[in-house]
Simulated scan of single mutants.
Amino acid sequence: MSFSISATQNQYITYILSDESALSRLEVVPERGGMIARWSIEGQDVFYLDEERFANPELTVRGGVPILFPICGDLPDNVYVYDNKAYHLKQHGLARNFPWEVIEQSTDSSCKLTLSLKSNEETLKMYPFDFELRLMYELQGKNLKIYQEYINKSDKVMPFSFGLHPYFLVKDKEQMVLDIPASSYQVKDTKEIIPFDGSFDFREEEIDVALKSLKRPSASIQDRARGLKVNLKWSDEYSTMVFWTLKGKEYVCFEPWSAPRNAISTGESLTELEPGATCEAMVEIDVTSV
């Protein structure tokens, strides 16, 4: 049997999903916001991880795949108004800051690990809705699927956006080839719309742009220096892809968001879920050698 799931007690309990035939190994840390911390294939890391930040529960993680809900990006002054009341939500929302619970696992024809996060007294102070989030990580060979369910357990329509924030390890960005099906992007700070020719200037201190109106629900990042190509696919619920990196850091983030930043206030591409209803979405990451 090439599929296995084990749990080990590090600083946090870590679930290790392994496909031994492909030498593919995924580490999931439910206590640290339900996130994937690491994924290695044949000994090569797919994701970047800042170990110091990961070890400090006071800091948000830079690395792995943090989960974004009920907002993506930041809000002006970290505030939004619902039903004439102001609520405070920090960047990317609350899901990545709470411990998740493992509710199911199987190793029949792949490794499947399902996690759940339910609203509680603390979340209700920031976001006044009863909800349950479920994420299932499925590992098979060099393929990872992340299935998501967003369940409205309140008696009112629940507005939100959601996303994932993968940090892909790239040691030499000049050796990277991007295939992103967009013709323009919007710069975060200036809001300027700039034509996209398929590449960025990595001499800039920071690149933080949103790509919308994508021609197809897939993209790829080829790392010629390491001989890896990461292919991404996403379901129709995602409207926006954000590309973010900092100069001198060995990562690029390519983030599927269901809506752009501040959607909870502007309404742009916002999901508004009826009571008792479920919104489902999926992101797939496939790694090949080049």
Rank of each mutant, 00 (worst) to 15 (best):
P76W: 09
S116F: 10
R203S: 15
A277D: 13
Y238D: 00
R53F: 01
K153R: 15
A263I: 00
F196N: 03
V65Q: 01
K188N: 11
V29E: 06
K125Q: 15
I180L: 15
I103S: 02
A7K: 15
Y82F: 14
E280Q: 13
C72Q: 01
Q186R: 14
V61F: 01
V79M: 10
K156G: 01
I36F: 03
Q11V: 08
W244A: 02
K188R: 15
T190Q: 07
T60H: 05
P159Q: 03
G163D: 02
S154W: 00
P66V: 03
S161T: 04
K191H: 13
Y87M: 08
E122M: 10
Q140F: 03
N152H: 06
F160Y: 11
K156L: 08
Y15N: 02
S239R: 04
L49N: 06
A277F: 04
R96M: 11
S40W: 04
V230W: 01
T114W: 08
A55T: 04
S116R: 15
Y48Q: 11
R32Y: 06
D130Q: 12
E284A: 11
G43M: 12
E101V: 12
V230C: 08
H92M: 08
V283Q: 00
K118Y: 01
L115G: 05
L89M: 13
E104C: 02
R226W: 01
D19W: 09
Q105M: 12
F69L: 10
F69G: 10
P66S: 09
V102C: 10
N56S: 12
L59A: 06
E104T: 02
E31K: 11
V157P: 04
L214G: 00
L144A: 12
L144I: 13
Q140E: 12
A95W: 04
Y185L: 07
E174M: 05
C279Q: 13
V46L: 14
